[in-house]
């Protein structure tokens, strides 16, 4: 009953890079995490911008200047790509949860679709928003 080996079991290594051949499924998997965490950072900026707008014109001007600055645009366009990638790959995960698309060929194809699709959607959105 007592677990004599507790705390002394082998741990699984971090699989990317050294131990694991590069493949699209590992790339799409880690990107899902990275984009999710990164959007948490972007969410801070978005909430700050809304709070500033609720506070008044001076506070809003400051927040809006930061978000629409050169660096702000870079961060927000990065977050936009993260959103589209996480959205497309998230739908891929939901389809997997329903039990479909697990064979290697389909998984590789939908993975590429999420990568390329997110880049295309980001570009389209930037164009649409820039044109008004």
């Amino acid at each position: 009953m007592a677990d004599v080996n507790r705390g002394n079991r082998p741990l699984s290594p971090f699989m990317l890079g050294k131990y694991y051949r590069f493949q699209i499924s590992s790339l799409t998997s880690i990107l899902h995490r990275i984009t999710g965490v990164a959007m948490g950072g972007a969410a801070l900026l978005v909430v700050w911008w809304f709070l500033a707008a609720a506070t008044g014109p001076a506070a809003f001007a400051r927040a809006d200047w930061v978000l629409t600055s050169w660096l702000g645009h870079l961060v927000l366009i990065g977050a936009l790509w993260a959103l589209f990638y996480h959205l497309l790959n998230g739908i891929r995960h939901l389809v997997w949860d329903a039990g479909h698309g697990f064979d290697l060929e389909t998984a590789a194809r939908t993975g590429k679709g999420a990568l390329i699709g997110s880049a295309v959607l980001t570009l389209l959105t930037v164009i649409i928003v820039a044109m008004g």
Partner: peptide
């Protein structure tokens, strides 16, 4: 829930950015 909500949130927010208080 976030599939439609993110898309519906995105465009008004992107348009409002930099459009003035």
């Amino acid at each position: 829930a976030l599939v439609p909500l993110a898309l519906l949130f995105l465009f008004p927010f992107a348009r409002a950015l930099g459009s003035g208080h």
